[in-house]
Write a protein that binds this DNA or RNA. Structure first.
Lengths: 193, 193
DNA sequence: ACAAGAACAGACAGGTCTGTATACTTCAGG
DNA sequence: CCTGAAGTATACAGACCTGTCTGTTCTTGT
């Protein structure tokens, strides 16, 4: 089997370890040495696959976007069987996430804060991710409102972002219920008109 | 003139400089050496007033809470003359903040992310600040809804928190308009019933 | 069997970080 | 005038950081 750069086992181990540690303890407080130790990989292997820590950070963000999409796809399918709308399934999935062990908020929000510099490639990717996430959310609302979703989707997005940071700070998932109730009310309201 | 620890000029200079640098570039990426250089203070003076960097972080958070309160007090008074409600004045003040040069989101949200550890005294203070801020917000809504404010205030809080992180990530203050319109609608809705 | 690529192992350079130690200056009150 | 407090200046310890370098071992295709 040919081991190309993109499918190398060592590379994958580095990526998964970095993603986990960055999320747990923060990008800046996790050093290269710790990543290679926990990934059981030589330092030179890491720098063969990723030119610098900044590049590794960017790679983990891309990796995590896939994971996030997969998580919501799976969790929403699971909840979709007993919820009336996709939006309800989404909030149920969101609650699952908030309640999952080690929950520490949105990795993309956190990266934006930690990187601080808007010029950093990571900050740019975060911006793109949030745009894609918002479009995903709009798609769910279109199930109920069609093109009228554009009127409420941005506000629902803010509720979701706000619920994430609030849940982290409060150390409790309760904010998701507030966000869900408000979002569903807004959608119902828009439908009624 | 007796120079007590709490009013020392050097201490104040350290506090203001640390607050500015921490907000600009992030708590973890700003070192003690840079703070003392820009504050024009000796290192020993800093450690006389603050036992450790962690303690300095906590002190800057407390200092900033006062500044935030003062800012909103002033800005809302300014806008209050031509807005119908205190809540509208609040969102006008929020927009001023988003548009101010060097805006980089909520220092307390950012601190919570950067500190990562929920056990850190700073994380605890952030939690308290957000509770106080939420009560302040509830108070504004009570002007329109009385005790009924409790029904919508938490959701308005999420809209505000979401608008802050979104504005930072997008690099644009537009989110505040979305949050304001949604919040006013929710309040009007609750009043109508 | 052997060459080549991939990963491992570990030392090292050069810088930064927090916090401490030591010695000097400035200045106000009794 | 002198004592004590506050601040200054600077060197240093010890840890940690990213990234580089050298050399070895393992695996795989030919």
């Amino acid at each position: 089997m040919e081991r190309t750069k993109a499918t190398s086992e060592a590379r994958q181990r580095i990526l998964e370890t970095a993603d986990r540690l960055f999320y747990q303890d923060g990008i800046r407080s996790v050093g290269i040495d710790r990543i290679i130790a926990e990934a059981a990989v030589a330092k030179m292997s890491l720098y063969k696959h990723f030119a610098s820590k900044d590049e590794l950070i960017l790679a983990t963000l891309k990796y995590r976007e896939e994971k996030v999409l997969a998580f919501f796809g799976l969790a929403m399918e699971r909840h979709g069987k007993r919820t009336k709308t996709k939006l309800r399934a989404f909030f149920a999935a969101l609650k699952d996430w908030f309640e999952s062990p080690g929950f520490r908020g949105c990795a993309f929000q956190n990266a934006a804060v930690e990187l601080a510099d808007p010029q950093h490639p990571g900050s740019d990717f975060v911006k793109g991710h949030k745009r894609r996430f918002q479009e995903f959310l709009s798609g769910l609302i279109e199930e109920s409102l069609g093109k009228g979703a554009a009127k409420v989707a941005p506000a629902v997005g803010l509720l979701v972002e706000g619920a994430i940071v609030t849940a982290v700070i409060q150390g409790s998932p309760d904010a998701v219920d507030v966000a869900r109730d408000a979002a569903l009310k807004m959608v119902a309201e828009a439908k009624g008109v």
